[in-house]
């Protein structure tokens, strides 16, 4: 058996050397790794056929995330707007980076569809317009990309892939609520009341903010406005040009939501109390409002003050300190 294998290998070596393998400098493709998320009901970290996760790829993505070299004028890095202590969001309408590797719909208006790799291609090519010459001129990065991807020439694809690998590690599943689901802790009476409001038609939040990711990868019109003055307000309409899609936005995750204000695509609400007041009494009924907006004809789900407070208390159980301080995700 061993001898047979040896023969095949020698044969292959000859045929390979003679025809198939271009004479390039050698490099080893690093060992693939898998990211395990051990939490009930959590999806598997998606695999990309061209972008296997490796320790070197993840580390490179992390370095790039914090490095203004991606910016043509070197002014900003991803981390300038996406701050770890705010679930990789900031005091503006910046969407957080938490469990994004599982998504297939990106940006408030859902205009990017595909994998996290596709989203990163957009960020690198369209949003940042990264100057690849700068990366290719850096001996440091040349070595790191070679280690991670076996390449001698850095293309935007490799930058996007490295970032995507890092994004696939930015996972949060250790909030108080998660520990409660895993039966490692208990919720207070008020938090349990909030849970029931959230996960029933009393408040009806779960249909769009579906556990365990607290988002559904869909766009909805929540009756926030009836006129759409800016392009940004038009939402998914920008993608389809179908009037029925006016004011439809990606459901943002509610993980770490206590830290990601101000809220909504236009940042109109400062506090969670204001948000819940909107869902209770501020919903504007209209032709293309989502059917899941219960009692929209009456302005919303009409929670009383105690229930509003309970719902806010529940939302606070979605804060995951271990994610916000995870050393593996911080500036390297």
């Amino acid at each position: 058996m061993g001898r047979a294998l040896g023969l095949v290998a020698i044969l292959a070596l000859f045929t390979g050397l003679s025809a198939c393998i271009p004479p390039e400098t050698e490099c080893e493709t690093p060992m693939p790794v898998t990211i395990e998320v051990n939490h009930p009901g959590f999806p598997k970290v998606p695999e990309h056929p061209e972008n296997q996760l490796t320790d070197k790829g993840i580390a490179l993505g992390r370095k790039l995330y914090y490095d203004p070299i991606l910016h043509p004028e070197g002014k900003q890095s991803c981390s300038s707007c996406h701050l770890q202590e705010k679930s990789f969001s900031s005091d503006a309408i910046v969407l957080p980076h938490v469990n994004l590797g599982f998504d297939h719909l990106y940006l408030w208006n859902g205009s990017i569809q595909g994998s996290i790799e596709d989203a990163m291609m957009f960020e690198v090519n369209e949003f940042f317009k990264t100057d690849l010459a700068k990366l290719n001129a850096s001996t440091d990065y040349m070595a790191l990309f070679k280690d991670a991807f076996c390449v001698d020439q850095i293309e935007s694809k490799h930058v996007a892939y490295a970032l995507a690998q890092f994004f696939k590690t930015m996972n949060s599943y250790n909030a108080k609520y998660d520990q409660y689901i895993r039966k490692e802790t208990t919720l207070t009476t008020e938090e349990r009341r909030g849970e029931l409001i959230f996960f029933s038609e009393l408040g009806d939040c779960f249909h769009c903010h579906s556990a365990p990711l607290f988002k559904d990868n869909l766009v909805h019109n929540t009756g926030l406005m009836v006129e759409y003055p800016t392009e940004h307000d038009k939402g998914y309409y920008v993608v389809t040009k179908n009037p029925a899609d006016l004011g439809k936005f990606k459901t943002p995750t509610l993980r770490n939501v206590a830290l990601t204000g101000p809220y909504m695509h236009d940042g109109r609400f400062e506090t969670l109390e204001e948000v819940i007041d909107f869902y209770s009494y501020g919903v504007i009924n209209q032709d293309n409002i989502d059917p899941l907006m219960k009692q929209a004809h009456k302005g919303g789900v009409a929670l009383d003050p105690d229930d509003m407070a309970a719902l806010v208390a529940f939302l606070h159980t979605l804060t995951d300190e271990s994610f916000l301080t995870n050393p593996d995700l911080s500036r390297p």
Binding site: V8, A12, G16, V151
Partner: peptide, 19 residues
């Protein structure tokens, strides 16, 4: 396999070429 298109003179790669 890795489509980034680089030589990987490992046994696996060689085997598949020969097959």
């Amino acid at each position: 396999m890795n489509k980034i298109g680089i030589a990987r003179p490992t046994l696996m790669a060689l085997l598949s070429i020969s097959i």
